[in-house]
Computed example of a mutant assay.
Amino acid sequence: MRTFRNRTTVLAATATAALALTLTACGGGDEGSDAKSAGSAKSAGSAPESSASAASGGGSGKGTDTAKASTGTGSSKTAPLCTTKDVSISAAHRGGPPYTHIVLTAKNTSGHSCEMSGFPQVQFLESHKENVPAVAKSKPAAPVVLSAGAPAYALVKLSDGGKDEQTEPVTAFSVMLQGGTGQAAVRAPGASGIAVDPAKWATGYWTPELRNGADDF
């Protein structure tokens, strides 16, 4: 009886251990599957969040900076008007002889953008205090905003170049900027200066470049 009872006990213990191993194996497989599923879901959820963060962070910020830079340098709404302290104005012959025109060049030396408004207000003679009149067809379609170091140009007619004209010699003259402040003294080109006829003189508008047709007068 004792031998039978011991054998029964051993068999029962073996069956119990086998059942435990089976349950453990089943439970381990389910746990691994769940972990794998959770990991896949987390990875799938993390990728879009990271992409969205990159798009809304670096990409969007860079675009905004570019837009601001473009607006700051190209829009007359944000650029102040140029003053005679912001630009260096010089004069040179245009064509000739006879020298019937000069070109004014205003270079932005301020270190910031500014707008060249309208046309140069030129006074050649003490005896004629009025400004040289502007030619409407030379007016540019868009505001002329100069970035730092950039030039603007204006063509100025002095005379028709005829011998019978009532011209007067000019070695230096004054230029003021519309809407800006200050007055610039400009040296006339040439060793003997220029000859101007108050009945014929005219000036063009400030432009980023001289244009054939619009600047021919």
Rank of each mutant, 00 (worst) to 15 (best):
L104G: 02
T105Y: 03
A106P: 12
K107Q: 13
G111I: 06
G111F: 09
M116L: 15
M116T: 04
S117I: 08
S117K: 15
S117F: 14
F119A: 14
F119M: 03
F119Y: 15
P120G: 05
V122Q: 02
Q123V: 13
F124M: 11
L125W: 12
E126V: 07
E126D: 15
E126T: 13
H128V: 15
H128I: 06
K129Q: 14
E130I: 08
E130V: 09
V132K: 06
V132N: 05
V132I: 12
P133K: 06
P133W: 07
A134E: 14
A134F: 13
V135D: 09
V135N: 08
A136R: 13
K137M: 11
S138G: 09
K139F: 01
P140D: 03
P140R: 06
P143N: 11
P143R: 01
L146G: 03
S147W: 00
S147A: 13
G149S: 01
A150I: 10
P151T: 08
A152L: 05
A152H: 04
V156G: 00
V156D: 00
D160V: 01
G162H: 10
G162N: 11
K163I: 04
D164S: 12
E165M: 01
Q166R: 11
T167V: 13
E168V: 14
V170C: 00
V170H: 05
T171L: 04
A172D: 08
F173I: 08
V175A: 02
V175T: 06
M176I: 00
L177N: 00
Q178E: 13
Q178G: 09
G179I: 04
G182L: 02
A184H: 01
A184W: 01
A185V: 12
V186K: 04
R187M: 10
A188T: 06
